[in-house]
Amino acid sequence: MGDRANHSQAERAATLAVELRALFSKIKRKLREQGGRNDLTPSQVSVLLRLENDGPAAVSSLARAEGMRPQSMSAIVTSLLEAGLVAGSPDPNDGRQTLISLSRKCEKLLREGRAARQDWLTNTIQKKLSAQEQEKLAAAVDLLTRLVED
């Protein structure tokens, strides 16, 4: 009977994994809709978030960090420059290089997008879930946190 229980538990875990992935995709899509990413490609978003987290960087450094060729990164950075989302300035340590950083416009868009997503999620939780359901959600968040902790 132990084997049957283990098999049943493994099937349940596999079903939960499929359901969680589908649910997270839907949540991510909803949050993206609320945040207004202005039709940025995933690569552009990744570069902007890297610059936000790591600070200014040269195109070659961004390319290495993103695992792509410098020519491909140059195309991404050029489109971000044209959109006014990043700015270039001379590298104080190496005048031959340009450091790319977020523009004030981009910083504002990132802040506003996060605030919009947070507001939408907060309001949706308040509107759709009772106090008891919010407690269950808090417990689920604790369990999900355990899944991703090392």
Rank of each mutant, 00 (worst) to 15 (best):
Q97F: 10
L102G: 02
L99D: 00
S79E: 13
P92K: 06
A87N: 12
L80H: 01
R104E: 15
V77R: 00
S101I: 00
V86C: 07
V77E: 01
R104L: 15
L110S: 07
Q97P: 08
G95L: 14
L85Q: 00
N93Q: 14
C106R: 04
L110N: 08
R104P: 12
E82I: 03
I100R: 01
L99N: 01
K105P: 05
R96Y: 07
E107C: 12
L80A: 01
E82K: 11
T78I: 12
E82L: 08
L110A: 04
T98P: 03
C106T: 05
R96Q: 11
S103D: 08
E82R: 11
S103F: 02
K105T: 12
G84A: 05
L102R: 04
N93L: 14
P92A: 06
K108H: 15
G88H: 09
A87H: 12
S103Y: 04
D94N: 10
N93P: 05
N93I: 10
T98D: 07
V86F: 03
A83I: 06
I100S: 00
R104S: 14
P90L: 08
L102W: 08
K108M: 13
T78F: 10
S89R: 14
S79G: 12
R104V: 13
K105D: 12
S101E: 04
L102N: 02
R104M: 15
S89I: 11
P92F: 03
K105M: 09
D94W: 01
I100G: 00
L99F: 00
A87C: 12
L102T: 01
T78Y: 11
L80Y: 03
E107P: 08
L109M: 11
N93W: 12
L102K: 02
R96N: 11
T78S: 14
L110R: 08
L110Q: 09
G84P: 02
L80E: 03
L102E: 06
A83T: 09
D91A: 00
L80P: 02
T98G: 04
S103K: 04
L110F: 06
A83D: 12
R104K: 15
L99E: 00
D91Y: 00
D91H: 02
L85D: 01
S101L: 02
A87E: 15
A83F: 09
I100Q: 03
R96S: 11
S79I: 05
L80F: 04
S101Y: 00
K105S: 10
S101D: 06
K105H: 09
S103M: 07
G88N: 10
L81H: 10
S101R: 08
E82D: 14
P92E: 07
G95C: 13
R96K: 13
D91E: 06
E107A: 11
G95T: 14
G84T: 06
S89K: 14
C106L: 04
S79C: 10
D94G: 02
A87D: 13
S79Q: 13
E82N: 11
L85K: 01
G88K: 13
A87K: 15
L80Q: 03
S101P: 01
L110P: 06
V86S: 05
G88D: 08
A83R: 13
D94Y: 02
L109W: 07
C106F: 07
